[in-house]
């Protein structure tokens, strides 16, 4: 190949200053795969998605979930998604931005959903994650607690759990913690 390099180098020496520079914006394979995921989204009716940075940044977006049954009926919960350039090799980073009284979501917004961490596989997609999050609200689960207190109440006293969830969603204290209204 050295001949080729030599020819190219010679050409460059000759045409030193010519050539308008083309600044190609690089689109990673992860972005392209995400483009497909997003264009094929088929979310539950009560979920919506928005792109705070406009139509050309799909790597950062927000999903709003309004559970249509269960303890959290009537509430509105916002999640941020951060997608890596090597998606889907790596799962998106998902955080819950609405402070919520929930056994599987802590007060910092960390979410315990298996497909976001230990069970993530490249065949899964954004739609799967949204369904997974939706499911957390219809079926909160005391087995995998991130909010230890909420999990214990759900397990031992579902009636009290229900009223705690109501109190939190309408804006009020559960124990020492103040929850903003999200209904």
């Amino acid at each position: 190949m050295i001949k080729l390099f030599k020819v190219k180098e010679k050409q460059k020496e000759l045409a030193e200053s010519a050539n308008g520079k083309s600044s190609i914006k690089k689109q990673s394979a992860g972005e392209l795969r995400l483009h497909r995921d997003i264009s094929e989204l088929n979310m539950p009716k009560s979920c919506s998605i928005s792109f705070p940075n406009g139509k050309d940044d799909l790597m950062n977006f927000e999903v709003t979930i309004r559970p249509d049954e269960g303890y959290y009926l009537g509430g509105t919960f916002m999640f941020t998604f951060q997608v890596s350039p090597i998606y889907p090799h790596e799962a998106p980073k998902v955080k819950c931005k609405t402070k919520v009284y929930h056994p599987n979501i802590d007060l910092e917004g960390n979410v315990c959903l298996n497909i976001l961490r230990e069970d993530w596989k490249p065949v899964l997609n954004i739609n799967t994650i949204i369904y997974g999050l939706f499911h957390l609200f219809t079926e909160p689960n005391s087995e995998d607690p991130l909010n230890h207190d909420a999990a214990a109440v759900l397990r031992d006293n579902p009636k009290l759990f229900e009223s705690n969830v109501r109190r939190a969603m309408t804006g009020g204290y559960v124990g020492q913690t103040l929850f903003p209204r999200c209904i």
Binding site: Q27, E31, H35, I38, S39, L41, M43, K55, D56
Partner: peptide, 22 residues
């Protein structure tokens, strides 16, 4: 088809917010 050109989303069939923007 949805179409993208070097990080420029020219047209998106879905979701509705993006369809509207493009």
């Amino acid at each position: 088809a949805s179409v993208t050109h070097q990080r420029n989303n020219l047209y998106m069939q879905a979701p509705p917010v993006l369809e509207e923007m493009t």
